[in-house]
C-alpha cells in the first residue's frame, strides 16, 4: 500500500524546512510591523499638523498605497529601482521597503483616527481638574488612544503577515517556494502537492488566527 502524501512532510527535515520558509516571511513581517509602528506615529502626527504641505504630502502617500496593489509596488522597487537609480536591491530589502511604505501610511491613518476620535471635552475636563499638560497626556489621552488603536493595529499586523507572502513573486525563497522544492523531490508521490499546500494554508491560519482573536477580544473588551 502506498503512503499517504502527508507522510512526506515528516520524512527527514521537510517540516522544519517549511517552518524555516515560513519564518522568512514572518521575519520580514515583524521588521515591517516594527518600522511601520515607528514611522506610522510620525505619519499620523503629520496628518494632524496644521500646516498644509505635510498634510497634502501624507494624503498623496496614503492614496498611492490605497490604489496600488502591493505587488505592483514590489515590482517597482525590485525591478524598477535597478533601472531608474541603479540600485540593485535584493528581494528581502525590497520587501521591507515596500511593506513599510505601505504599513506606515496605514498605521499613520489608524493613529490619526484614534487620536481624533477622543472628544475635546476629555482634555478640557482634565484641564479643569487642574491636571498639567503632561499628566493629561499620560492619564487621559494616551490610555484612550491606545484602547482604540490596539485592536486595529493588530488587525493591520495580520494583514502585513498575509501580504508578505507576496515575496514569492520576487524570487525570495519562502514557504511556498520551499513547498515547491519538496514537491519536486517527491514527484513520485502523486498527492504530495495537495498535502504540502494544505499544510502551508494551515500554517498561515495558525499564525494569523490568534492575532485576529486577540484583536476581537480587545475590541469587545474595551469598546
Amino acid at each position: 500500500m502506498q503512503d499517504l502524501g502527508i507522510s512526506i512532510l515528516f520524512k527527514g527535515v521537510n517540516f522544519q524546512r517549511l517552518l524555516m520558509g515560513l519564518w522568512v516571511t514572518l521575519r520580514l513581517a515583524l521588521i515591517t510591523i516594527g518600522l511601520s509602528g515607528v514611522f506610522g506615529l510620525v505619519f499620523g502626527l503629520l496628518m494632524l499638523s496644521k500646516r498644509k504641505i505635510p498634510k497634502i504630502f501624507c494624503r498623496c502617500w496614503l492614496e498611492i498605497v490605497r490604489f496600488m496593489p502591493q505587488l505592483v509596488l514590489l515590482y517597482i522597487v525590485y525591478f524598477g529601482f535597478a533601472r531608474l537609480f541603479g540600485w540593485d536591491l535584493d528581494g528581502e530589502t525590497s520587501a521591507v521597503i515596500v511593506f513599510t511604505f505601505w504599513g506606515t501610511a496605514e498605521m499613520g491613518d489608524l493613529i490619526r483616527g484614534a487620536l481624533t476620535s477622543i472628544p475635546r471635552h476629555q482634555t478640557e475636563s482634565a484641564a479643569a481638574l487642574g491636571l498639567t499638560k503632561g499628566r493629561i497626556y499620560l492619564h487621559v489621552l494616551i490610555p484612550q488612544t491606545v484602547r482604540r488603536l490596539l485592536p486595529q493595529a493588530i488587525n493591520l499586523s495580520t494583514r502585513i503577515i498575509k501580504t508578505t507572502a507576496l515575496v514569492k513573486m520576487i524570487n525570495v525563497t519562502e514557504v511556498l517556494k520551499v513547498g515547491q522544492q519538496i514537491i519536486g523531490q517527491f514527484y513520485r508521490q502523486p498527492d504530495a502537492a495537495f498535502w504540502v499546500y494544505f499544510v502551508i494554508f494551515l500554517l498561515y491560519f495558525l499564525v494569523c488566527w490568534p492575532f485576529s482573536l486577540l484583536a476581537r477580544h480587545l475590541e469587545s473588551h474595551w469598546a
Binding site: G5, K168, A192, Y197
Partner: peptide, 17 residues
C-alpha cells in the same frame, strides 16, 4: 486569516492531485 496567494496555490496546484 490566510493569504490569497496560498489559497490559489492550494486550489490550482494542490486540489488536482
Amino acid at each position: 486569516n490566510t493569504p490569497l496567494l496560498v489559497q490559489l496555490f492550494f486550489l490550482y496546484a494542490g486540489l488536482p492531485r
